[in-house]
Design a protein around this nucleic acid. Sequence first.
DNA 1: TATATAAATGATAATAATTTTCATTTACAA
DNA 2: TTGTAAATGAAAATTATTATCATTTATATA
Lengths: 143, 143
Amino acid sequence: MRLTERKIAATLRQHGYKLTPQRRAVMRTIASTQDHLTPAAIYQKVHKDHPSIGLVTIYRTLDILAKLELICELHAGGSCRSYTVGARGHHHHLICSNCGEVIDFTGYDLTQLEQRLSRQTGFEIEGHLLEFIGLCQNCQKND
Amino acid sequence: MRLTERKIAATLRQHGYKLTPQRRAVMRTIASTQDHLTPAAIYQKVHKDHPSIGLVTIYRTLDILAKLELICELHAGGSCRSYTVGARGHHHHLICSNCGEVIDFTGYDLTQLEQRLSRQTGFEIEGHLLEFIGLCQNCQKND
DNA sequence: TATATAAATGATAATAATTTTCATTTACAA
DNA sequence: TTGTAAATGAAAATTATTATCATTTATATA
């Protein structure tokens, strides 16, 4: 099922958010493409039709839509990074969203999936990022 | 096999990078903990013993170590995000590191792994991030 | 339909993270 | 020992994001 502007509007209402022209514009822009857009790119597109809309409103709207899971977020390198020694061999991360604790885990192999994707898309795959986000035991208690 | 300072030094040399006291200090700091550290955190730690070292050098050193795959990078929300309509149901991303094209793929289920991790670590898992990075067909040609 | 009100907006400033520039210093090959 | 390319530090420039606050507006309800 394709995500429609109507669907987004309804969900906003359900959660008590107002339906403003600015939000409509952002929704329409995101729904109009399959591409992934950065906040700045969305701002530029929206700005053409609605020159008075502010970048801040874009950010606020994106936060809401992401919280309602109407849009999804991805990270493609760049900022917000942290580092650790690279445990030899493959490992992935489990990150506490509250305190930031990171647990490495091993023993999960994505080779097959990688081959499938490579075959299906023609991509030459260089690497991947697999992370789970959640609350660690400690932060669950102190909630 | 644990990553040692010696190992890091050798790899640097192999790739024609000089072994400076500043790089030693960064390496020693990263190798001394299992935690994941942000560039700023690494800077603070290094700064105690070597007050003259600059944050810029930390960034430069991290870039090199990451390129040589001696350390690994993770993204824990925050900046560097982009958005798309959330295709209903689960999907993950395949991102071209050159042109930024994003392909969504479905049909890969991480539920079992999630349950295993939850059992083993006590985490209450809220979500995950699975992305493959590579070169799309087009960018492979124009190389 | 008018209106009260909480929510949303835009402008601006503030903060944070990262990169660039460039003059100076330094590791190391010869 | 020395020449040279590479690395460094300081400072400024970019870029991304968030906070503040006075003004406007969507919408529930009278």
